[in-house]
């Protein structure tokens, strides 16, 4: 159909040459068409970020220096990077494993297909349900007066907060992040799990492999690049999260985005250039994890053909 239209189009054009004036007009139009987009992205994305990056390598007098980057290793700032990395790692790792298990269960677990449809639709919503309302939902659930906290205490006699748990802590945040990480994992890993060809399992079976041998030797190794890639995507996703943390903990939980947020609000570091360096560090981490994600995805696609 397409080919037909194309050949019709070509035929007509061959028989009816376009006037030269028209061609000249089109060339200039082509370039004009791209200008707004490049102008917008340059002005509102590239230049502002470049401004911060340059500032990261300058002192307050505008001279070149590495001092700001070296200051990133000072105890306070290094601690907040380390906290951010651990939190992102934990929530991404839990999200990856849980999402993979869920994908396996709903795609090839032998369950009715409406369940898979329900989880996919729900995940499309839940992966976008982040920020402030998500924090509110978890406060109402697992906060000091949250419904689950109360029920556990009154019905089962388990006092979560007496046992050291609090929602406003590392693991509380990790558990809250999971609410958008798990659905995201389900959505991004589904194509890879679907890409496991039934023939691979059958071939392994006919060669004498049992279920565990198939998964250990074929299924999981084939999935590994995709799973690692998705992990990095989840890591980056958690690393940039700010609104949920603020709504849950105020500004007390000093992950990197919070430190930067505070700095913008009131220059709490007494050195704007150190703020630029923190922003620079965040982008570097995002670039690294996203680049690695793309590399792993390319590898996975090569296998999937």
């Amino acid at each position: 159909m397409t080919a037909m239209i194309e050949s019709v189009a070509n035929d007509v054009r061959v028989g009816q040459p376009i006037p030269t004036r028209n061609i000249a007009a089109r060339v200039s139009w082509s370039w004009l068409g791209a200008i707004p987009y490049f102008a917008f992205t340059t002005l509102f994305m590239l230049i502002p970020v470049a401004y911060l990056f340059i500032g990261a390598f300058q002192n307050q007098q505008g001279e070149f220096t590495f001092a700001n980057l070296i200051d990133l290793t000072s105890p306070n700032i290094a601690a907040s990077y380390w906290l951010s990395i651990r939190l992102s790692f934990a929530s991404a790792a839990i999200g990856t494993i849980a999402g993979l298990l869920l994908a396996y269960a709903v795609i090839m677990g032998g369950l009715p297909s409406w369940l898979r449809h329900a989880f996919t639709t729900f995940s499309g919503v839940a992966s976008n349900f982040a920020g402030v309302p998500l924090a509110f939902a978890f406060i109402a659930t697992l906060g000091r007066l949250g419904l689950v906290t109360i029920i556990l205490k009154q019905v089962f006699g388990i006092d979560l907060y007496a046992s050291g748990f609090t929602l406003y802590s590392f693991w509380g945040l990790a558990l809250t992040y999971l609410y958008f990480q798990l659905p995201l994992m389900l959505l991004v890993i589904t194509p890879a799990v679907e890409g496991l060809k039934p023939e691979w399992r059958e071939a392994a079976q006919s060669l004498g492999a049992n279920r565990a041998q198939y998964w250990l030797e074929v299924g999981l190794p084939v999935l590994t690049p995709s799973v690692l890639g998705c992990f990095l995507l989840l890591f980056a996703n958690a690393f940039g999260t700010l609104a949920t943390v603020i709504a849950l903990t105020g500004s007390n939980f000093s992950v990197v985005p919070i430190v930067l947020f505070q700095q913008i609000r009131g220059n709490v570091l007494y050195n704007p250039n150190l703020g630029y360096a923190i922003a620079f560090g965040m982008v570097v981490i995002m670039v690294l994890s996203n680049t690695l994600y793309l590399v792993l995805r390319a590898r996975a696609e090569r296998w999937q053909k």
């Binding site: 791209a34 987009y37 490049f38 992205t41 509102f44 994305m45 230049i47 502002p48 970020v49 401004y51 911060l52 500032g55 980056a236 690393f239 940039g240 700010l242 985005p257 930067l260 947020f261 913008i264 703020g275 922003a279 965040m282 982008v283 995002m286 670039v287 996203n290």
Partner: peptide
Amino acid sequence: AVEFLSLLPLIIPPVVLVFGHIRL
């Protein structure tokens, strides 16, 4: 180039973006 620019916001955290805007 166009596609790359369209994906950049995924690796620039909003807090960094707005920081740049406020300064610039």
